[in-house]
Amino acid sequence: MRAPVFDAVIHAPGRLQICAMLSAADEVEFATVRDAIAVSDSVLSKHVKQLEDAGYLKVRKAAAGGRQRTWLALTPDGKTAFAAHVSELTRLAGIVAS
């Protein structure tokens, strides 16, 4: 388990769920994430930009079926930061429970 570190960039509403989805797959399509967390394209784009700026997320564009698709993935730094953040949440949850 990673050393617990609270990360405000990851923890923000919406971004925690985005990172959780991305942690369970190598890549998730933009539209799939948008539908799962029930936000608009523009709101998700802002979250993606913030995670990208932090170096936690990478974006890949690919043409498929005659249209452009955007794929999102956590970077190695993003995976490390997310694991550390979840460790911190687990630690805090333990304190609250005890």
Binding site: A20, M21, A25, A36, I37, L89, A93, A97
Partner: peptide
């Protein structure tokens, strides 16, 4: 938001991908 609630969001996100 409590830590438990945040962890529940994490689990939910992973399950959505699965």
């Amino acid at each position: 938001q409590t830590p438990q609630e945040a962890l529940a969001i994490v689990l939910e996100g992973r399950e959505q991908a699965l």
